[in-house]
Design a protein around this nucleic acid. Structure first.
Lengths: 238, 238
DNA sequence: CGAGCCGTTGAGTTCATTCAAACAGGGTGG
DNA sequence: CCACCCTGTTTGAATGAACTCAACGGCTCG
């Protein structure tokens, strides 16, 4: 659990914002002084709902998963956080939720909710920065809802690959090193691990992607991956 | 299609924020002057992606649905907007999206994205208000992702009922008048209409809810509805 | 080497979907 | 008043897809 798990793990310094974003929260800014920075290796808990306060989280380097444990014991990952991504849980008092590192050497800034809210009214720059981070979180959640709304497992996995590729590689290339395990993908897409695995091999066999090791993905046919992965269902709903 | 659609529709003035929120955007405030207010009846389009600008939307009275049309023609509803709810699409350039009224006499304020962003740095009060609206949108999207993450259709429908009940009735009662049709529920939960209908009748037959007309729902057994609707799966995931 | 985790593949079952039909309610017009 | 249409909702039957259970290979680490 400690050392390198996969020799092909990506270097954790890669920049991964959705749009370009200012470099908020320098350690000596007002926002930065509010934060508690936590360093963790893969699989270790960064924060959980048993902590006394509610927090918002921002990944500094590495990657993290924000999840909720459902009443039936399953784990739903609500967000995958790459550097500069921001996330806060809202209205989940009854549930257990938490943030784990998914790569080694991950650093996360934790902002106490109340104090962060109190700062909003004081400083327009802070409010603006927080707004933009919140919009970034909203954008990722919209993407997740859209992916979860897909019908077939192949479509979900395909949309996941395209989305995560956009965030990790910023659209510069067709190759991707996944920061997530199959289990994390499954918990993110609400699929079983087996189905994720089967979908990936099927996408490979259809020539839409190619795999070089479990985490090295190359997009071969972007259009087919984006548009119609279901065999055939052309008619609209409603 | 014109007059009152359901005589039992709740008065549209009911307050429906997730947490208590200030009354932003009075028509004569800076934020209010930015807005274009649109009035629509049930089923009419409020705004769409063919419009020249990107907008953020806030429901003043009535109810609305924010949706995206997927490449396969299906419609995914990303948010149901009740009074004072705020929503903006992010990063869906390739897709068709829109906002429709789902009750008669619905009014929606449309804020042009660029101008709204420009205001953020100027006025801390505006930035704070926009922040809180964005957090509200984030909270609803998290709830949606959590609901979509459920396995069975019964669980999805049950979670939907509890969530929408919380938002419409604010937890004061066990009775609810749904603002949505079965079709809207289906597009929100990514289910077929038939499955939504079947799930509701099954929940009724199990004694978890009771139905008086298609839109009158009463929660009978809140705990069972919340916790385990699947027949039997006690073991934890992971 | 054995233990443990991750990933893949196979076989059988469950469950949501599609296709199809029927019913209820509102509205209109003969 | 009744026939008719249209929308929304419900129910039935059959198909198909993802799930569970199970097993195996690869890899790391102790």
């Amino acid at each position: 659990m400690k050392g390198r798990m996969h020799p092909d793990q990506p270097p954790v310094t890669r920049y991964a914002g959705q749009q370009q974003r200012p470099n908020y929260a320098h350690p000596n800014s007002r926002l930065g002084r509010l934060a508690t920075v936590i360093h963790r290796d893969r699989g270790e808990e960064i924060h959980g709902s048993e902590c006394s306060d509610d927090y918002w989280y921002r990944v500094i380097c590495g990657a993290a998963r924000c999840y909720i444990v459902l009443p039936d014991g399953r784990r739903q990952i609500l967000d995958l956080l790459l550097p500069d991504d921001f996330f806060g849980f809202s209205g989940f008092e009854g549930y257990f939720y938490g943030v784990d590192a998914i790569t080694d050497n991950t650093s996360v800034a934790c902002y106490p909710r109340g104090e962060l809210l109190a700062l909003l009214g004081d400083d327009p720059a802070i409010a603006r920065a927080v707004c933009e981070m919140a919009f970034g979180a909203t954008a990722r959640l919209q993407q997740l809802a859209l992916i979860l709304g897909r019908i077939t497992a192949r479509e979900k996995v395909g949309a996941f690959l395209l989305t995560i590729m956009q965030r990790v590689e910023r659209g510069n290339t067709d190759r991707l090193v996944l920061p997530t395990s199959r289990y994390d993908i499954a918990d993110y897409l609400t699929l079983s691990v087996e189905t994720v695995s089967r979908s990936l091999t099927e996408l490979k066999q259809r020539g839409l992607i190619s795999l070089a090791g479990p985490r090295h993905v190359q997009i071969v046919d972007r259009n087919r991956l984006k548009n119609r992965l279901a065999p055939d269902n052309g008619q609209s709903a409603n």
